[in-house]
């Protein structure tokens, strides 16, 4: 990850001198280390906490994915058994199809909708209103995430929910479904939560990118008759690809690993129709006490999410940095 400010870091802090200090100590000499004891002392609490609570758990998970592991019982090595169990489990293909659906939708909702909102705000001429919209766009974030999900559960309520009340009032009785209780619609109802998906953080990140496009680029484009939609397609989008890449990675990781909304709304049901691997991981650990199996699913999800991240990193190449301020 980088930011406009961190690119200045290197010049301010003496270039990319990875190993050498400015005083001219050559490389990793003992004297250089000793002279820098203060820096290491200041960093030591951070690294002590990181090693125990941040570095160690994923390493442990990586290892214990190949073990039978329960609280209070010594772990036993079982090789690839956990992975074989998961891949031969009858519901697994279904779960994978579900995360593909969630992924496609997540990319749309996480990348496209905030971009549209950001462009709309960016095109506003009045500076005061622009500032106001920037603030208003974060209002949905003032409601805790769990409350939003619980509210949507109420909206979907087949008997007491406003969605079905509205459909009945419009004479569309037959469309008033049990949204979260029907096999075929439940997964789409879960996706629809948060409509119209104008995510404040994403919008602000895009606005940051758009704001950094140099005025001279826009002037030159306007002289060539490149305005409005043409400008969005030929200038704005290529120049916010760095932001697109960040949001795409966040969307992929989220679609593959997140299951909180599903846990709250349907708990994988009805039947197994909204099950995802993350939820199976959760259930096998905290309901079936199969922590090794659960770690194996966690490892699989990690591999899938990392591959997605790498593909996006290779696939989306941000445009020339010189066009920025």
């Amino acid at each position: 990850m980088s930011s406009a400010q961190s690119t200045q870091t290197d010049s301010a802090a003496g270039g990319r001198g990875l190993w050498t200090s400015r005083t001219g100590d050559s490389g990793l000499s003992w004297r250089a280390f000793r002279r820098s004891w203060q820096a290491y002392a200041l960093l030591s609490p951070i690294f002590i906490l990181l090693s125990i609570f941040v570095y160690y758990p994923p390493v442990l998970g990586l290892i214990r994915a190949f073990f039978r592991w329960r609280p209070g019982v010594p772990a036993t090595f079982v090789g690839l058994d956990n992975f074989i169990t998961y891949f031969t489990y009858a519901e697994t293909p279904h779960e994978l199809v579900n995360i593909v659906k969630l992924l496609i939708f997540g990319l749309f909702a996480g990348i496209v909708m905030p971009f549209i909102m950001a462009e709309l705000i960016f095109f506003v001429r009045s500076a005061a209103l622009k500032e106001l919209y920037r603030l208003l766009v974060i209002i949905p974030m003032l409601v805790p995430g769990i409350v939003t999900v619980l509210l949507w559960q109420k909206l979907y309520d087949p008997y007491l929910g406003p969605i079905n009340d509205m459909l009945r009032a419009m004479g569309l009785e037959y469309l008033a479904l049990n949204w979260l209780g029907e096999h075929r619609v439940a997964i789409y109802a879960i996706m629809f939560v948060g409509f119209p998906w104008v995510w404040g953080v994403g919008t602000l990140i895009y606005l940051g990118g758009l704001g950094q496009i140099s005025e001279s680029v826009y002037e030159a484009a306007a002289l060539d008759g490149c305005t409005g939609m043409g400008r969005v397609l030929r200038i704005d989008i290529p120049l916010v690809l760095g932001q697109v890449r960040l949001l795409a990675i966040l969307a992929i990781i989220n679609a593959i690993t997140a299951f909180q909304n599903i846990l709250v709304l349907t708990d994988g049901g009805p039947g197994f129709s909204t099950m995802v691997p993350g939820l199976t991981m959760f259930h096998s650990a905290f309901r079936a006490q199969k922590f090794g199996y659960s770690s194996a699913i966690g490892l699989l999800l990690f591999i899938i999410a990392m591959s997605g991240t790498l593909i996006i990193n290779r696939g989306i190449r941000p445009a020339n940095e010189e066009l920025r301020q």
């Binding site: 994923p58 991981m281 966690g298 999800l301 990392m306």
Partner: peptide, 14 residues
Amino acid sequence: MVPWVLSFIPAYML
């Protein structure tokens, strides 16, 4: 860049 899924279960055990 490390998604939390990998650490959730082992962190609980820790």
